[in-house]
């Protein structure tokens, strides 16, 4: 019974995540940027912009300039999360390639970095007056959700081990649209339940910052307004 509920939950979450993301991204892509507004100094070529964007996404360059504490916690959390996510690929593939095996220990300890970063960010929401002022219930809930996910994950890895082989069979089954039996440890159910919630709220929450950053005109535009005329389709109509 539980297996069925979780299977349906995950299928639904996956559909909502993919469809929601697709719709939102299509919306961003369709909306024109009427004017050239890169924050200067900005790169003068496309490849320069790719580099600028890469520095933002890999190193959080602007955040580093801005605030060292937020950078430290935010960067630790995000990079830890990537490693953890990579580690989790093993539950979705039959054979584990060499690189993935190699990534396992890193992914494991990155879980601690992820949690530490999250707790640091959360602490700031209470301790720093300015950030307390701008934090709303959803900001706290989002952190709670992420802490629950990483906390329960670490628990399963280091404290109450779960039948990981069975979990993998369940997940591989989901990919083939089959429902296998899911172990019933509460901690696993919490972990998976929270992940499903995260997937569902992703397209309707601030988590959209992940895809949206690629559409931010202040960061993704080339500084060449004099050389190349930039005109939005709706603005072109004003000229007729």
């Amino acid at each position: 019974m539980l297996s069925v509920i979780y299977a349906i939950l995950f299928w639904a979450a996956a559909v909502i995540l993919v469809a929601g993301l697709g719709l939102r991204i299509a919306r961003y892509a369709r909306t024109p940027a009427p004017l050239k507004i890169p924050t200067t100094p900005a790169p003068m070529t496309r490849s320069g912009v790719v580099l600028r964007m890469a520095r933002e996404i890999v190193f959080f360059e602007s955040l580093f300039k801005s605030n060292k504490w937020i950078w430290l916690f935010g960067w630790t959390f995000h990079m830890g999360m990537w490693l953890v996510l990579i580690r989790h690929i093993r539950y979705f593939t039959h054979d584990i390639p060499g690189w993935l095996a190699l990534a396992q220990p890193f992914g494991t300890y990155a879980g601690f970095a992820m949690l530490a970063g999250l707790l640091g960010l959360w602490a700031r929401r209470f301790l720093v007056e300015r950030i307390r002022y701008i934090s709303g219930p959803s900001d706290h809930l989002m952190l709670a959700l992420l802490v629950a996910i990483s906390g329960s994950g670490l628990m399963m890895r280091f404290v109450v081990h779960t039948d990981i082989v069975a979990v993998k069979v369940f997940m591989l089954g989901l990919l083939r649209l089959r429902i296998e039996t899911l172990p019933t440890e509460p901690i696993l159910l919490v972990h998976l339940g929270c992940v499903a919630i995260l997937m569902i709220v992703f397209p309707i929450s601030k988590l959209m910052h992940a895809p949206a950053v690629f559409f931010s005109p202040t960061r993704n535009q080339v500084d060449n307004p004099r050389e190349q005329r930039h005109l939005a389709p709706w603005a072109a109509k004003l000229e007729q």
Binding site: I37, D139, V213
Partner: peptide, 24 residues
């Protein structure tokens, strides 16, 4: 404006309330 100006639309969506701008 949200349909005509990509900046306006994504900026309204994407803020994570990190607070980095609060003292700027």
């Amino acid at each position: 404006l949200a349909d005509k100006n990509r900046g306006f639309r994504v900026y309204l969506d994407m803020c994570v309330k990190c607070g980095a701008c609060t003292d700027k």
